[in-house]
Design a binder for these strands. Structure first.
Lengths: 151, 151
DNA sequence: GCTTTATCTCAAGTGAACTTGAGGTCGTAG
DNA sequence: CTACGACCTCAAGTTCACTTGAGATAAAGC
């Protein structure tokens, strides 16, 4: 039928992941295949790009769920171009920017809360998990002690 | 003894993590505490910085094990400065650079394997898991089909 | 004194991302 | 025709990073 399509073993070799991982990704809906008469999987080469994106995303702390949300926005039927990928990935922009900034601070000095001039963790613009301050009212936090934050 | 030190509940509130997480981090050797006569934990404020680094590292895909390796290089006894952190974090430099580059490609175009001009996944300088090529012999890979890699 | 709130320990449970294993099919090589 | 390798399914196991729960203690408020 489509002689250029790849078997699961070939895909695994080319993508640098075990066959079991491809089975798993397919079960999770991240990639797709069709079946030969012998019920063997065959993959369009495009799936290689999807796998690459999954792997890269995982190494930078993006979950499979988040990746799937983006991949689901990439068309399957047509020749997919750079623009299609960019459009699908646009919801990631803010998250990726944030991660990049965090990484740069970590790399450049590992002193990101000194570097950004804040005195305590909870008003650091780089470390504000779940926007805790917002929930509990604005303004810097106070506590009973008064020693400074230098560590 | 040290009235400015924080209880586990205070630490949890300030770091934005549950108490259970602090117990866990302590069990894993990422942070340290002393105990009151009532066997309650007390933390030096410096531990807040360690917690912040752990949290940031996790969000960008660095494992606790890797974080611990770096934190173990940060002195506990003395006033720790920016330089001490930077020195301890130096083994991270390459890994962090790589992650930053991956993230930027993902963000900028999501077409990182088109963008970098390579034809296939396995000689892409950005996606070379475990340096598979190196293990299997140098040179680009060939496969039986010849359709191009555009997806 | 009594209750509440914060803490303690330790064991077991959870979700994500896979991996491993058992048991079976298919197609080509010898 | 038999062996072999590559593939199949499905269930169970593994690691990481925590979370939850049971049962106990201890200082603080009424």
């Amino acid at each position: 039928m489509r002689p250029n399509d790849l078997s699961v073993g070939e895909m695994a070799a080319r993508a640098g992941v075990p066959v079991s991982t491809l089975h798993y990704y397919e079960a999770e809906g991240l990639i797709e295949s069709w079946r030969t008469p012998a019920n063997h999987r065959r993959y369009d080469r495009r799936e290689l790009r999807r796998i690459a994106i999954v792997r890269v995303a995982l190494t930078v702390g993006v979950s499979l769920k988040e990746v799937k949300a983006v991949l689901d926005g990439v068309p399957r039927d047509k020749a997919v171009g750079k623009d299609d990928w960019a459009a699908a990935a646009s919801p990631w922009a803010d998250m990726l920017d944030e991660k990049i900034e965090l990484l740069q601070r970590l790399r450049d000095q590992m002193g990101f809360c000194i570097g950004c001039g804040c005195l305590s963790l909870d008003n650091c613009p780089l470390y504000n998990p779940e926007d805790v301050l917002g929930e509990n009212g604005a303004g810097p936090r106070r506590w009973t002690g008064e020693a400074d934050e230098r560590a």
